[in-house]
Design a protein around this nucleic acid. Structure first.
Lengths: 157, 157
DNA sequence: ACTTAATAGATGACGTGTCATTTAATTTAT
DNA sequence: ATAAATTAAATGACACGTCATCTATTAAGT
């Protein structure tokens, strides 16, 4: 067994740094659109799964766990999405993009594309795949594995 | 140029997921010690660089940027560290571990070692090195590159 | 039918990180 | 020597995520 944890410790901080750096980058790209990276994630999910419930959204979100009441609350206030009580079971709230939310979506796609392009300038296609495989290994048997699976980012996708 | 951003998008969410999963794991390990991952980072830095100033701490921290006044404030209240005004230039505040902070440090080391051991059970030594190289590439010419360098996690360390 | 259990979501309280501003101390310029 | 500029840290305001608790609605058990 390894008793030298230097590389492991380095990995820990690299993951933190890369996540924060990427988030800052995306935040800047999204700033002029007036949304945060979390907003962008919600809007993207809603675009691909209209009329989802709050609970289902929570199951799909990577940026937050538990029920995203607070995040949704803010986005409703910002007129990005709207809450609609379910007809059959009024415990559920179904979420939908507003016209404003739809407008933002097309802008978000462009901002994200810029970031992904930048990433592809640093990593070759092979490197990106290898990195994804390596990172995926760390999520085996964690709640995130299922989230990513349901989002279409599973191992064999 | 790639127009298919699927892998890049997957990478984005994998980084977020891995960071959050790792943070949750560490948070649980540290819970019984009564400190957070951020606390652990500060304590580790202070152990290796006694009598550092608040500003220098800010330069070294990965978990937060800017001046970590708030983080330090809470840790002082928790009696983990103490503030000492610099004799020569009383604008500066020098930070030092309290006896309690020192006690926590030895426990933190053990908790972190458990996590690093777990990581080493998932990754081979080679995989870990490759991952670190890959992640490091993303931080080229970013503020984090310098932080990691100063922390002893530079490219050739 | 009525009571109890389970479920979805909302809410209060809290810890946390960030930014802009303010305060205090030192350095520089005149 | 004095005034202005610079610097370190503290502080107020705010956005965010998490947890425990509460409310409302539906389902299950008797």
């Amino acid at each position: 067994m390894e008793k030298n944890f230097k590389e492991a410790e380095k990995f820990r901080y690299l993951i933190l740094a890369v996540q924060r750096q990427g988030n800052n980058l995306l935040k800047n790209y999204l700033k002029e659109i007036g949304v945060t990276p979390s907003h962008a994630e919600v809007i993207s999910i809603l675009k691909n799964a209209q009329s989802i419930t709050l609970k289902e959204l929570g199951r799909l979100l990577i940026c937050e766990d538990g029920s995203p009441s607070r995040l949704v609350e803010r986005m409703v206030k910002d007129q990005l999405i709207e809450r609609v009580r379910d007809e059959n079971d009024s415990r559920f709230v179904r979420l939908a993009l507003t016209p404003l939310g739809n407008e933002k979506y097309s802008l978000i796609i462009k901002a994200e594309a810029e970031m992904y392009t930048m990433l592809q300038q640093i990593y070759t296609s092979d490197e990106l795949q290898i990195s994804n495989q390596m990172l995926s290994k760390l999520l085996t048997d964690t709640p995130f594995e299922q989230k990513l699976e349901e989002r279409g980012f599973g191992v064999n996708k």
